[in-house]
Simulated assay, not measured.
Amino acid sequence: MKISRSWGWVAVLATALAGVSPLSATATSEPVVVVQGSGPRYLGTLGGSSSWGADINARSHVAGSAQTSNGSVHAFRWTPSNGMQDLGTLGGRNSSAVAINQWGQIIGDSHTDVDGEGHAFVWTPSGGMRDLGTFGGCCTVPRAINDRGQVTGDSYFADGNMHAFQWTAAGGLCDLGTLGGLARYGSAINVLGQITGSSYNAEGALRAFRWTPSGGMQDLGTLGGRNSQGWEINPLGHIIGLAEVADGSNHGFRWTPSGGMQDLGPFVPSEINALGQIVGSQFFDPEGPPHPHHASRWTPSGGWQDLGTLGGEESFAWGITDLGHVIGAADRSDGSRHVFRWTTSSGMRDLGPLPENLDPVAMNIRGQIAGSIADMAEGRSSAFLWTP
């Protein structure tokens, strides 16, 4: 699962400092033993100076991108037993991994030739890298892959319009249709092949949608305002995202097939697990002056629960496992920020200091975290795996 969108600035800054982009000779790192509670483990590079973690599966396999010895950037797969593997490209100079499923299948972007546009790919351990094609335009952007190897994202037509897609090995690219407008994109896909994302309607409003193989694209509506966005979908078909209320402000929402769109209040949801439990960060007293964020957990039976802090002002939830365990970061009374694990039985437990310039981008069902740590002085970035 991907971690909340609020932590992405560190990776962007690190990329700028290094002078390269994850998409702008084979080498491997030494295998690393994953030790619980030992802090971030650096995954190495492909011969260059920097690497970036993008996603992690339940087997502790990490997908990401790393510089090679000639300065290009290639997608990689890292495993505890074999270290870092160069996935190559579709014929161009650079490639970049986006996500990995539980079977080790990876999606990403790659240049198709030296000056080519970016095409989406799916990489499998048995078949290597496969071009997903386009709808006739410049490029295709992959965003998520499920455990059946089905992919969603968006692809361009020759006229420049962008449509959401579902890709399967048997059927190739499938246009998800329209809510009446032009541009739309797929954000997430569950194991049933159901997709959520956002599409413009005929009036120019952006709306969250659910797409199913049998029912096509469904407008999920709003909370009384004009726009909404679909972000994540779980195996039950429950969707989280943001929607405008009547005064134009945004609230988090949960949508279910039986209950429709439910207002979660002034809250930005970051993850939903298989049980429908949600985590994110909530603003307190939205009518008053700005207040600190607190990590919060929502359940269908109990509503919102403030997870508190470690004695300081703020806390942020990164993700939630299917057991309901929450991983995040929280301030201490001395102003330092530490990593925490929260459980219903023990509450918030301090796991130690949050390394400076750490960007956690994904968490697996075991609570392991992958991402990148920027070395600001050296102008480089290192992919990591952390088992808190």
Rank of each mutant, 00 (worst) to 15 (best):
I240V: 10
I373G: 01
R297D: 02
A99C: 05
P300W: 07
S95N: 10
H294M: 12
S29F: 13
G303H: 12
Y42L: 15
T212H: 13
G324T: 04
I145S: 00
F76Q: 01
R207F: 04
Q102S: 13
L87F: 08
D113W: 15
L87R: 06
G104P: 08
E30R: 11
I373N: 00
T387E: 10
I233F: 07
W386Y: 02
V35D: 03
I233M: 09
M376Q: 06
G248V: 11
Q85K: 15
S281C: 15
D115Q: 12
G92C: 13
D131I: 06
M129P: 09
S96K: 14
L206T: 08
G39I: 06
H294P: 13
Q229N: 11
T256S: 08
I233W: 10
G367A: 03
L206F: 02
V191R: 15
L310W: 01
L173K: 06
A27D: 08
P22T: 15
P360C: 00
G172L: 11
T134F: 12
S81Y: 12
D55S: 15
N227C: 14
G230Q: 07
C138E: 07
G177R: 09
V32W: 04
E313L: 14
V122E: 03
G83T: 02
R337W: 04
G153M: 09
L13Y: 07
M217W: 09
A120N: 04
V33Q: 13
S301C: 09
L182G: 03
A63Q: 08
S198V: 01
G53F: 06
C138G: 08
R349E: 10
A18R: 10
D175I: 12
E313S: 14
L275H: 10
I189P: 04
S228M: 09
G335M: 10
G127N: 15
H61G: 00
T79M: 14
R366P: 03
